[in-house]
Write a protein that binds this DNA or RNA. Structure first.
Lengths: 151, 151
DNA sequence: CCGTTTGTATCTATATTTGTTACAAACGGC
DNA sequence: GCCGTTTGTAACAAATATAGATACAAACGG
């Protein structure tokens, strides 16, 4: 949803968008959008203004905002997590497993961020533009079902 | 937790472990372990036997089981997900965003699997072995707090 | 044949996320 | 300076997912 929001803002250019307008396209409540915009604002990706002529716009060119920035702004930091309840410390494996898995998760997180770091909001916008031109497109044709697990 | 389970099984070697024993080290309920073992069994990573002398053991050498196998066995398929409620199809961005993001998620998933595919259960076991030898270790010393979001 | 263990169903508790209502603070136009 | 508008945030309800627990039939070995 955050990527969706930023893509809309990229499209709008200089013109500020109101959370209500964005919510309409995303098909959700305006407060949900404001929460996202707030997080993006704290990360320095967007600027917002209150008041009658208010709204939000990108803080810098869409080409200079990567999905990695978005990821860091809206996701906490731990996508994968360890045991909810710590393992039994009396077991030789239990004592150390969390430390070792921590390294694994760090490696995974790094790989995720590297992939996301190579994709800009502008490139997303471009993909959408081309998608809407040709309907015989591999992008939009694939996937229409995965409504599972955390948005 | 699945990695924890497999590491224990790798340690046990030929001797089958009961779900109750595993649950003790992981510090959870035996049924939770059995659920994991069942998923791992369906993926062909472990074999289990009922009965008095029953229990579970690895279906093949620990070196030939990667965390990618584990990942596929226990996680559904979509770690990241799209909008819970589909975007507004009347919006130019809303129509195509899911297709484009689907490609992004596929790329991220591929990167995750690639990293996990290079780590075997055996290497996890080795890391734990060395961890427990030297206490001045970067692995186990780092991280002790991230109890956030899904185990 | 009998005790043990898996596999699975079912239920509860807990955590997380989303959606919703409400409202103070900020801002621009008049 | 006032007034309507919009953000930022709090508070709460609803939906969803996961973990933990109890129960029990089926399978297996001695």
């Amino acid at each position: 949803m955050a990527v969706h929001v930023l893509t809309l803002l990229a499209w709008a250019g200089d013109e500020p968008l109101k959370s209500e307008e964005i919510a309409c396209s995303v098909n959700t409540n305006a407060v949900v959008i404001r929460r996202i915009l707030c997080a993006l604002g704290r990360a320095g990706l967007v600027t917002s203004q209150t008041g009658a002529a208010g709204g939000s716009r990108l803080a810098r060119p869409a080409r200079e905002i990567t999905l990695r920035d978005v990821y860091r702004a809206v996701e906490g930091q731990d996508i994968f997590a360890l045991h909810r309840q710590p393992p039994n410390p009396k077991c030789r494996v239990g004592v150390n497993i969390e430390g070792v898995l921590g390294d694994v998760l760090a490696a995974v997180g790094g790989a995720v961020e590297q992939v996301l770091g190579e994709i800009s909001v502008e490139s997303i916008r471009q993909s959408i533009k081309t998608s809407s031109r040709s309907s015989s497109n591999r992008s939009s044709s694939s996937r229409r079902q995965p409504r599972r697990k955390r948005a």
